[in-house]
Measured scan of single mutants.
Amino acid sequence: MTEYKLVVVGAGGVGKSALTIQLIQNHFVDEYDPTIEDSYRKQVVIDGETCLLDILDTAGQEEYSAMRDQYMRTGEGFLCVFAINNTKSFEDIHHYREQIKRVKDSEDVPMVLVGNKCDLPSRTVDTKQAQDLARSYGIPFIETSAKTRQGVDDAFYTLVREIRKHKEKMSKDGKKKKKKSKTKCVIM
């Protein structure tokens, strides 16, 4: 069974824990209790493949930012979460993405942009803004509501699919490099 290491990042209060708990335990946590770091595991079937999701729910508070490099190193894919009623959390996505790329030393890291709290009427981040940002990053965008469960499975499952595509691409690139290195030079 394939294991996928997913990391949920975003500013404090955007609903990272609520999304994760909704996926794992099928219930909505409405009281806000700032996370330092929590880890969850769940076995699911995605596109006919049974897999184990190892999900790291991270601290959004700035005082825990020193811990970010460590979990970013171990993560295979990242859910970059903002709240649709919090423009600052949307603007912060850029910083999370840049930090992930720096730590992973790669421009090509599996990510999904997630606009959470889409059940709320007080939207300050337009869907088109988020779609445009995701398009500019070359990553999928999904709106979710941890409260109603809308888009929750889709967000995590899409990230797994992005990781699969990335692994497939990397193995193809690896095979191309191996083929090239088999060419021999004969000096007579």
Results as ranks from 00 to 15, higher is better:
residue 13 G to A: 02
residue 157 Y to P: 08
residue 180 K to A: 12
residue 155 A to M: 14
residue 157 Y to L: 10
residue 139 I to W: 04
residue 95 H to T: 14
residue 42 K to I: 04
residue 177 K to L: 05
residue 64 Y to Q: 11
residue 158 T to N: 05
residue 72 M to Q: 05
residue 156 F to W: 05
residue 18 A to T: 14
residue 136 S to R: 09
residue 186 V to I: 15
residue 73 R to G: 08
residue 71 Y to C: 15
residue 97 R to F: 15
residue 57 D to Q: 00
residue 63 E to A: 02
residue 124 T to L: 08
residue 64 Y to L: 04
residue 36 I to S: 00
residue 157 Y to E: 13
residue 9 V to N: 02
residue 62 E to V: 03
residue 132 D to M: 05
residue 116 N to I: 12
residue 55 I to C: 13
residue 36 I to R: 00
residue 108 D to F: 11
residue 120 L to M: 10
residue 15 G to C: 00
residue 165 K to Y: 14
residue 44 V to N: 10
residue 77 G to V: 11
residue 179 K to S: 07
residue 24 I to E: 00
residue 156 F to H: 13
residue 71 Y to Q: 15
residue 102 R to P: 01
residue 186 V to G: 05
residue 50 T to L: 11
residue 73 R to N: 12
residue 83 A to V: 02
residue 141 F to M: 05
residue 150 Q to R: 07
residue 41 R to C: 00
residue 123 R to H: 11
residue 44 V to I: 10
residue 134 A to M: 05
residue 141 F to R: 03
residue 90 F to L: 10
residue 39 S to R: 01
residue 80 C to G: 02
residue 76 E to R: 14
residue 125 V to N: 11
residue 176 K to C: 06
residue 84 I to C: 14
residue 7 V to S: 07
residue 23 L to I: 10
residue 90 F to M: 15
residue 55 I to E: 00
residue 60 G to Q: 15
residue 5 K to S: 02
residue 167 K to M: 10
residue 70 Q to D: 11
residue 16 K to D: 15
residue 31 E to G: 10
residue 139 I to P: 09
residue 29 V to T: 04
residue 4 Y to F: 07
residue 159 L to H: 04
residue 62 E to Y: 03
residue 8 V to M: 06
residue 20 T to A: 02
residue 186 V to C: 07
residue 23 L to P: 00
residue 136 S to D: 14
residue 104 K to S: 14
residue 142 I to C: 13
residue 43 Q to Y: 09
residue 47 D to R: 04
residue 57 D to A: 00
residue 155 A to L: 14
residue 66 A to W: 05
residue 71 Y to F: 04
residue 135 R to C: 12
residue 127 T to C: 08
residue 180 K to S: 09
residue 87 T to Q: 05
residue 187 I to W: 07
residue 128 K to H: 05
residue 159 L to Y: 01
residue 15 G to F: 04
residue 112 V to T: 01
residue 15 G to P: 02
residue 68 R to M: 01
residue 2 T to G: 06
residue 159 L to W: 01
residue 105 D to F: 14
residue 61 Q to I: 07
residue 188 M to W: 08
residue 183 T to E: 11
residue 62 E to H: 06
residue 53 L to M: 05
residue 66 A to D: 13
residue 164 R to C: 13
residue 142 I to R: 12
residue 12 G to K: 04
residue 38 D to P: 01
residue 113 L to K: 01
residue 122 S to Q: 09
residue 7 V to K: 01
residue 59 A to H: 01
residue 66 A to E: 10
residue 172 K to V: 13
residue 158 T to M: 06
residue 60 G to D: 15
residue 104 K to I: 13
residue 150 Q to L: 06
residue 156 F to I: 15
residue 156 F to D: 02
residue 126 D to P: 07
residue 63 E to M: 01
residue 74 T to P: 05
residue 157 Y to F: 09
residue 122 S to Y: 08
residue 185 C to R: 10
residue 110 P to D: 02
residue 146 A to I: 10
residue 46 I to P: 14
residue 76 E to V: 15
residue 167 K to H: 10
residue 160 V to N: 05
residue 81 V to F: 04
residue 48 G to C: 03
residue 174 G to A: 07
residue 160 V to Q: 07
residue 119 D to S: 15
residue 12 G to C: 01
residue 12 G to H: 14
residue 65 S to A: 06
residue 87 T to A: 10
residue 38 D to S: 00
residue 103 V to Y: 15
residue 53 L to G: 09
residue 173 D to C: 12
residue 55 I to W: 15
residue 94 H to C: 15
residue 137 Y to T: 06
residue 58 T to A: 10
residue 2 T to Y: 06
residue 64 Y to F: 05
residue 38 D to I: 00
residue 132 D to T: 05
residue 157 Y to I: 11
residue 50 T to Y: 08
residue 69 D to E: 14
residue 40 Y to C: 01
residue 154 D to L: 08
residue 3 E to K: 05
residue 71 Y to H: 14
residue 115 G to Q: 02
residue 127 T to Y: 09
residue 165 K to C: 04
residue 35 T to Y: 15
residue 52 L to M: 04
residue 24 I to N: 04
residue 103 V to F: 15
residue 60 G to F: 13
residue 182 K to S: 06
residue 119 D to A: 15
residue 25 Q to T: 14
residue 106 S to G: 14
residue 28 F to M: 05
residue 34 P to S: 15
residue 35 T to P: 04
residue 176 K to E: 13
residue 153 D to Y: 08
residue 75 G to W: 03
residue 50 T to I: 06
residue 28 F to P: 01
residue 112 V to L: 13
residue 54 D to P: 00
residue 121 P to G: 13
residue 139 I to F: 03
residue 119 D to Q: 13
residue 64 Y to T: 08
residue 157 Y to V: 12
residue 80 C to K: 00
residue 127 T to L: 07
residue 186 V to E: 06
residue 144 T to Q: 13
residue 79 L to M: 08
residue 86 N to G: 11
residue 39 S to V: 09
residue 86 N to D: 15
residue 158 T to K: 14
residue 7 V to L: 12
residue 137 Y to F: 07
residue 98 E to S: 05
residue 115 G to I: 11
residue 69 D to C: 02
residue 169 K to V: 06
residue 61 Q to L: 03
residue 164 R to P: 15
residue 39 S to E: 04
residue 187 I to T: 06
residue 82 F to N: 04
residue 57 D to R: 00
residue 169 K to T: 13
residue 54 D to G: 01
residue 170 M to S: 13
residue 89 S to R: 06
residue 26 N to C: 12
residue 60 G to T: 15
residue 96 Y to Q: 08
residue 10 G to R: 00
residue 159 L to I: 12
residue 33 D to W: 01
residue 36 I to N: 00
residue 21 I to V: 03
residue 131 Q to Y: 04
residue 86 N to S: 08
residue 52 L to P: 01
residue 145 S to I: 06
residue 101 K to Y: 08
residue 78 F to C: 04
residue 80 C to M: 13
residue 161 R to W: 13
residue 41 R to Y: 00
residue 129 Q to P: 12
residue 34 P to N: 06
residue 114 V to D: 00
residue 97 R to N: 06
residue 20 T to W: 15
residue 89 S to P: 04
residue 105 D to V: 03
residue 117 K to G: 11
residue 2 T to L: 05
residue 91 E to V: 02
residue 34 P to Y: 14
residue 178 K to W: 06
residue 169 K to S: 13
residue 111 M to G: 00
residue 41 R to K: 01
residue 25 Q to C: 13
residue 105 D to K: 14
residue 153 D to I: 09
residue 40 Y to A: 00
residue 166 H to P: 06
residue 40 Y to G: 00
residue 182 K to M: 05
residue 34 P to G: 14
residue 15 G to A: 01
residue 62 E to T: 05
residue 170 M to A: 15
residue 151 G to N: 12
residue 178 K to N: 06
residue 90 F to V: 11
residue 3 E to I: 02
residue 108 D to C: 09
residue 138 G to S: 05
residue 60 G to K: 15
residue 183 T to F: 05
residue 82 F to S: 12
residue 141 F to V: 11
residue 25 Q to M: 15
residue 95 H to C: 09
residue 167 K to E: 11
